[in-house]
């Protein structure tokens, strides 16, 4: 298992994902370190990536400048380039508790919610609007990237949740089954079923524990084991069938 995880990290790193500073360097638990690093990777879409990077001459966090691309520059981008821009460049300050506090046993868990990770920035109004206004195109572009890379970046997962993109469930399941180490995908599947108020999921103890319980929070999680893994994947597949038939 350890070898598989380390191999997966090497593959992920070669795909050019963008890593957030997570504060895991000091852990002696290689399994957890590998897991947390992989779970925090953002996807970097290839569409005009270099062009967008060059246009982002205003360095994020500079003391006197803003993180967002100005309107004129933004208007010159194609839809695909805008997709890349939004995915790699959150524009709005993230609030203080938008920080992921990894624990030393993350790799043994399936989280109820996707980690709130930021380098001080999150998506702003213009960006959420872009995702929702161009929902079908955004989903299609994410599908293209996921198929090519066989992985789903954390930024993609958050947009999938935001767009309630249940049509993408089969691709998420296939991607998960390729490596079976991205617990965040199981989280996304659960979030889609929750958002869709899928009755068979809402009736489970898992749903009660992670989302409905009085003390359920963004820190809630459940044990990662083959039983929970299979249960979530099978239920999400049924949910997809139910919504498409």
């Amino acid at each position: 298992m350890k070898k598989i995880l380390i191999s997966c990290l090497l593959i992920i790193s070669s795909c050019g994902g963008k890593k957030h500073a997570m504060g895991v360097a000091k852990t002696g638990q290689n399994d957890n370190k590998t897991f947390v690093t992989a779970e925090s990777l953002d996807a970097e879409p290839p569409y005009g990536l270099e062009k967008v990077r060059k246009m982002l001459t205003i360095k994020k966090g500079d003391l006197l400048n803003y993180a967002s691309m100005n309107d004129t520059a933004y208007a010159s981008l194609s839809l695909r380039e805008r997709f890349t821009y939004h995915m790699i460049n959150p524009e709005q300050y993230a609030q203080t508790c938008t920080i992921y506090f990894p624990k030393d046993d993350e790799y043994k868990q399936i989280a109820a919610q996707l980690p709130r990770i930021s380098e001080g920035f999150t998506w702003g109004e213009r960006q959420w609007k872009f995702f929702s206004t161009n929902r079908d195109s955004v989903i299609a572009l994410m599908e293209e990237c996921i198929k090519k890379e066989s992985k789903v970046g954390l930024n993609f997962k958050r947009v999938i949740e935001y767009l309630d993109a249940k049509e993408i469930i089969p691709l998420l399941v296939n991607t998960y089954n390729n490596g079976r180490n991205d617990h965040g995908l199981l989280t996304v599947l659960m979030l889609l079923m929750k958002e869709g108020k899928y009755a068979p999921f809402l009736a489970t103890q898992l749903y009660q524990k992670l989302y409905a319980n009085e003390n359920a929070s963004y820190k809630s999680n459940t044990k990662f084991n083959s039983e929970n893994e299979r249960f979530i994947v099978e239920l999400a597949t049924s949910y997809h069938h139910a919504t498409t038939n």
């Binding site: 300050y93 993230a94 920035f121």
Partner: peptide, 12 residues
């Protein structure tokens, strides 16, 4: 025990 993080120019 929790520790938050925010940009030094952010105003919330």
């Amino acid at each position: 025990y929790d520790i938050g993080r925010v940009n030094i120019r952010a105003s919330f």
